[in-house]
Nucleic acid binder design. Structure first.
Lengths: 251, 251
DNA sequence: CCTTTTATAGTCGACCTGACTATTAAAAGG
DNA sequence: CCTTTTAATAGTCAGGTCGACTATAAAAGG
């Protein structure tokens, strides 16, 4: 922005006037992911109107005049999930999608976000009439607009973030076992991991997880009770937790 | 986007009408980086108009009605640098900035991009009247709008990309020495690296660089002539080339 | 009690890393 | 022409990390 302004002045239009008749609608789209029963799920809403009536889509909506995209995303997330604690949630900007024609009605530029939730509240009809549902990632296909692509980008991004950041704990409840944390990695990456090695690396990364004081353990499960951990203070992972067998891809 | 549509219909406004009177201007901003004499430089333009008249800013401009943000960024890059080969350039979306009030005149949502260039053509007055200049990164302060932050975000992002991708070769001419490649890392990270170790890691990463056929070497320099390399086919770096002495930061 | 299940501890060789030394091949300067 | 300087490249070595694997502990189910 900014660099163009002289040209606007030269052609005799006020800045606002020139672009007011070619407005862009700005929206946010949310890829809200969670883990249910060991598999990745995404929050989808069913569209009631054309275009794409009856199709599933990522939740989202228009920016209000006085809010940032982050604010709008948080507001929409609260509206669509019915969650109360949205304020403490980690929202990350994914990418902006601006191809002309991605919405058949008008020019829409959309800022996409990702959000990670611990296993989420079952019922959410969304504040807006639209029906909302958790759908297994693999069944979320043929979404409205370019949401297939956004969702795929979100998964790729999350997978990368798990390598270098402590984002995985966002999928877990406040207290969790290392087994649960490993399930996060396995679900997002789609690869089984060796348990002792995973444990060693997680505990070796300073600030990733911290044991719950008192040596609390999760009982009631099948085998030996697991120690409970909380998310640590670190945001980034050193050394990184790299996925196995990735060789140099040309893409 | 999309999820909100029912509400629009309910309140009796057509979609387009409702938002036409609250339009958002959409722009692109470019953080174009290059290496000159071993230090990082950024392309800036001088503003001629208020607000921020006389201040330096990142190049950029408004989206035209029928182009994507990527198209607009590429067009602006060509206009402002006068480069001919913009088609082969790697443009990467950085982030979108949408805080209300970031432009005092109107509501502007800006999609920021990064671009990396080999040591660039000296003269570029930009297609638009504005003056354009390469400025050392450390001297690019107090830019217009929120461009200080965008530039800082860009440097952080590029630094991270150097660890995991082959992006560093984008700073180099088609044929380069490992010494030049090391200078890229040192300039972006702001850390000196051990030459033999750097060399070992770069050559160990499959597809990062490929020797120029015929064993061509760069003569005319000070010491022993260096072998020439080209960018290899890989896009990602395995194993990654991590910066030294980073400990778990809480931020 | 014995099997199953899951968590946790430990082992081992291959490989990678950082720090460092040594050698080579050019240019620069008398 | 020979010495010095500079930079590229080769090689070394101890410590750390990795993946693969084995062993033990502690619960539930029959």
């Amino acid at each position: 922005m900014g660099g163009e302004l002289p040209r606007e002045e030269h052609d005799g239009h006020g800045t606002y006037d020139k672009y007011a008749h070619e407005p862009f609608a700005v929206t946010v789209d949310l890829a809200v992911l969670t883990l249910r029963g060991g598999t990745l799920h995404v929050l989808l809403v069913e569209r009631g109107q054309e275009p794409y009536a009856g199709r599933w889509a990522l939740p989202g909506g228009f920016l209000l005049p006085d809010e940032s995209a982050e604010d709008a995303a948080r507001r929409e997330l609260a509206e669509e999930t019915g969650l109360a604690d949205v304020s403490g949630l980690r929202l990350e900007q994914l990418r902006t999608y601006s191809e002309p024609g991605r919405d058949p009605r008008m020019r829409v530029v959309s800022v996409a976000f990702t959000a990670l939730l611990p296993d989420a509240p079952e019922a959410h009809g969304g504040g807006d009439a639209a029906q909302a549902r958790w759908v297994p990632y693999d069944e979320a296909r043929e979404l409205a607009f370019d949401h297939d692509r956004i969702l795929a980008d979100a998964r790729t991004r999350i997978g990368d973030r798990l390598e270098n950041t402590c984002a995985a704990t966002a999928f877990c409840p406040p207290e969790f076992t290392l087994g649960e944390l490993q399930q996060v990695y396995e679900a997002v990456w789609g690869t089984p991991l060796d348990r002792p090695n995973f444990r060693r690396k997680v505990l070796a990364a300073p600030g990733f997880v911290a044991p719950v004081p008192g040596g609390a353990r999760l009982t009631g499960g099948r085998g030996k009770p697991a120690a409970l951990y909380r998310a640590g203070p670190a945001a980034t992972l050193h050394p990184p937790l790299l996925r196995p067998q990735r060789e140099g891809r040309t893409t």
